[in-house]
């Protein structure tokens, strides 16, 4: 029977996509971001204390207990697409049981194409962490190219729900992220597409971050965050949220 390592399931989340949602966190990530605030979920072989191997049925059952107070579920990680088959089955089963309107989103890093899961998901909350190849590699240990390609592909399908960028220090990279990803979306799906894509600018916070990175990572100023918010709004993203 298909199972996946589930770190935790939250019954009520207002920060994992539009509306109130249940959020499912899976273990293992193919990025190793310096600012990761739950690094214990990175190692695919890691076994945090709360981790349980759950079947598709168990996850869908548990999420369903939060009805009618949620509008859907968000599968997050780690990187949920490392469990592509499981993600597919959970979304398929959730929609079969709770109706096609029950929205299924992924919070994902864009490293793995979504082609297979696309028919059963409503959208992706896509992390765009950096755009320069060297900066992306330095921050995450992985290439930026697939992320941009996924952003374009999802936008074309109308399934790019949100872009999320963790804002660091002087904000230069975040600004580049906003501008470049907007450009790619417009190329792929036209300027109108931006109006239905939200942008979430997440202010870096040291909480939970591994000690070795604390010195180099800087918290951005509030003024800078507001400046970025304006840039994202001017590009056409809607809504733009600072957290």
């Amino acid at each position: 029977m298909l199972t996946a390592p589930v770190v935790k399931i939250i019954d009520s989340s207002a920060v994992d996509g539009p509306g109130n949602r249940s959020a499912v966190f899976l273990q293992g990530c193919n990025f190793n971001c310096e600012y990761c605030h739950n690094p214990e979920t990175i190692d695919p072989e890691g076994r945090p204390e709360s981790l349980r191997f759950l079947t598709v049925e168990q996850v869908v059952d548990r999420v369903g207990r939060s009805l009618p107070f949620i509008r859907g579920l968000t599968i997050s990680g780690g990187e949920c697409m490392l469990h592509e088959a499981f993600v597919y089955e959970v979304c398929l089963e959730a929609k079969r049981r709770y109706g096609q309107d029950f929205s299924c989103l992924l919070d994902s890093n864009g490293s793995i194409p979504y082609d297979r899961v696309l028919p059963v998901i409503d959208g992706v909350l896509l992390d765009v962490k950096a755009v320069d190849e060297s900066a992306h590699r330095a921050l995450t240990g992985a290439s930026a190219a697939p992320v941009m390609a996924q952003a374009a592909a999802l936008a074309k399908e109308g399934k790019l729900t949100e872009i999320r960028t963790v804002v660091l220090g002087n904000c230069d990279e975040a600004e580049k992220c906003i501008l470049r990803v907007a450009e790619r979306i417009v190329e792929a799906a036209g300027a109108d597409a931006l109006r239905n894509i939200s942008y979430r600018l997440i202010k870096y916070r040291p909480k939970g971050v591994r000690k070795e990175y604390l010195k180099t990572l800087k918290v951005p100023g509030d003024k800078e965050m507001v400046r970025l918010e304006r840039i994202a709004s001017d590009c056409g993203f809607s809504p733009v949220v600072i957290v």
């Binding site: 009520s12 989340s13 207002a14 920060v15 109130n20 009618p68 107070f69 949620i70 949220v241 957290v243």
Partner: peptide
Amino acid sequence: TAEKNPRAVLDIFKG
């Protein structure tokens, strides 16, 4: 934090 996502509060009210 609910102010950032009022739709979430509305979902709860609907429920």
